Simulated scan of single mutants.
Amino acid sequence: MQARIDCFYCYFKQIANCMDIAGIEEDRQYQIFFDLMDDIKKMDRYRTPAENTTEMLMKLYRKIDNNDPFKESKEKSNTLALELYPALKDHLQKSTDKLYDALKISVAGNIIDLGIQKDYDLDASLQYSLKEGFSKNDYPRFVEKLAASDSVIIIGDNAGEIVFDRLLVEELIRLGKKITYLVKDSPVLNDATMDDARQAGMDKIATVTTTGSHYLGAPLTKISDEVSKLLEKSSLVISKGQANFETLEHEELAKDRIFFLLKIKCACIGQAAGANLGDIVFFTR
């Protein structure tokens, strides 16, 4: 997915949120904004928003001398999600379609996007996901593909959300599947890293590996060769969140193998996905 004119708003919003969370004094924020404007003007509009955002953030991190400004926020998100975990586990035990509900719980955590919004309501997101379900839904196709697959790759997204993904992973394991869960190699925004996987307990139930990259999403030219080959060989992949969608939806390897699981938090993403703002979707190309 190529960047669009509306992406510029998000670039600025993410800079502002990051500096606010990092506690940067307001006068210094103005100067950093002015400095980064020259870089934003040079961004390649034909690349994905995720790639442009990543490179802008890395410049910002250097300017504020902080390579993980969201560290404390990520830990809090994981802690909050872990507090909800027992009740959600109990809900799944009573479900008549555990896998389907596990997917809906997993996508509920996608609301934790601190780059765009500093506040979120996890409980409301869970209630919406479980009640409303997917507006675009390829679940029957997924079940068909799953029956023919021994393993599943899940491309993770945010901290906190990874706890909800754990419930999905546990259900897939119950169905006899081997799971590889991908996290970022180093911090960017509030994306999950190996530290978050350990806090969420994901490392105890799945093979957790990094993308070999700090880039948002999973751009094939930026992730490690090992992970790129892993995606190419896999028969079934679940891609969480908007950045993964941005970087993979146009790739040939995505067709009928990568299932995108996300909440639509951007009109441009909605247009590309064929859904409305606020929808949750689960579909493949």
Rank of each mutant, 00 (worst) to 15 (best):
D195Q: 05
L175M: 15
A159L: 08
D191S: 05
D191K: 01
L167I: 11
P187W: 03
Q127P: 00
R141W: 08
L189A: 01
L182C: 11
P187E: 06
K178Q: 12
I154G: 06
A159N: 10
K136H: 12
I116E: 14
D185H: 14
I162W: 11
A159V: 06
T207Q: 13
V188K: 00
L182G: 09
Y181Q: 04
D121I: 10
K118P: 08
A148V: 10
T210Q: 02
V208H: 03
V183C: 02
R141M: 14
T210P: 01
Y128H: 15
T211P: 00
I173R: 00
I112K: 10
I205P: 03
A192P: 06
I205D: 07
K136T: 12
S213V: 08
E144I: 03
S186Q: 10
S125E: 13
N137Q: 06
L175D: 13
G160C: 01
K136W: 11
S213A: 10
E170S: 08
E144L: 06
D196A: 04
G212Y: 07
Y128R: 15
T193A: 03
A192E: 04
V188A: 05
A206P: 04
P140A: 02
I153N: 03
K177R: 13
I112F: 14
A124S: 14
E132Q: 15
M202L: 15
G201K: 08
T209E: 15
M202A: 05
G133M: 10
Y181F: 15
I162F: 11
N137E: 09
M194K: 10
R198H: 08
L146M: 15
T209F: 07
D113C: 09
G201R: 09
V152I: 13
D138Y: 13
T210M: 03
A124G: 10
L126W: 13
D119L: 08
S213I: 05
Y139I: 10
F164S: 08
T210N: 09
L167P: 04
D123N: 04
L182T: 12
T211V: 05
S125I: 09
Y120C: 01
V188G: 04
I162S: 11
P140K: 01
R166C: 10
E170F: 01
F134R: 08
V143N: 03
T180D: 11
N158K: 06
L172Q: 04
D191P: 09
T180P: 00
D196R: 01
T193D: 06
D157V: 10
K118S: 12
